[in-house]
């Protein structure tokens, strides 16, 4: 059944099961692989995307529930100034190790900075604690968020 989506600022029509989680629509149907699969059960945050600006776990978001919501994925993060600053800080501070979690980290961090331009440690913990980094780059993620906040 064709579904109309607003994805990364463009109108997209996708023919997929409404029950299919957005994660797999993005990855396997649309070939947009920047959003990652880590757990499928809302534990790791690797699949974080923005739905109307709010961070959501794409593995727990059925396609049929998206409606007219605007979806933003990591591939379009650079279109927002906050996203771009975060990406630059991530590169400048050499945050990634394997890098697999970082799309989800950046999406969570972008939502945080938009709502709270100067987050303290407690605010960072609260916003980022749903995002696992198996390589444990947490010290640098924290530093990069702070650097982006003042950039």
């Amino acid at each position: 059944m064709p579904t109309k989506l607003t994805l990364n600022g463009k109108a997209v029509t996708v023919d997929a099961d409404p029950e299919m989680p957005l994660l797999w629509v993005l990855r396997d149907v649309l070939g947009l692989t920047g959003t990652k699969y880590g757990c499928g059960v809302a534990q790791c945050g690797a699949c974080t995307v923005h739905l109307d600006g709010q961070p959501v776990r794409a593995c727990q978001t059925p396609l049929g529930s998206v409606g007219k919501g605007r979806i933003t994925t990591i591939e379009a993060l650079a279109t927002s100034p906050v996203g771009r600053k975060l990406q630059d800080a991530w590169v400048a501070l050499d945050v990634p190790q394997c890098g697999y979690c970082q799309a989800g980290q950046l999406m969570s961090a972008a939502a945080l900075l938009r709502d709270n331009p100067r987050p303290d440690d407690a605010a960072i913990d609260a916003a980022m604690t749903g995002n696992y980094c198996r390589c444990a780059t947490y010290n640098r993620i924290r530093a990069a968020i702070k650097q982006a906040a003042v950039a």
């Binding site: 994925t73 993060l77 590169v91 945050v95 990634p96 799309a103």
Partner: peptide, 9 residues
Amino acid sequence: DNRKVVTGQ
């Protein structure tokens, strides 16, 4: 590869 990582390539 950091720039590719942070842009989801």
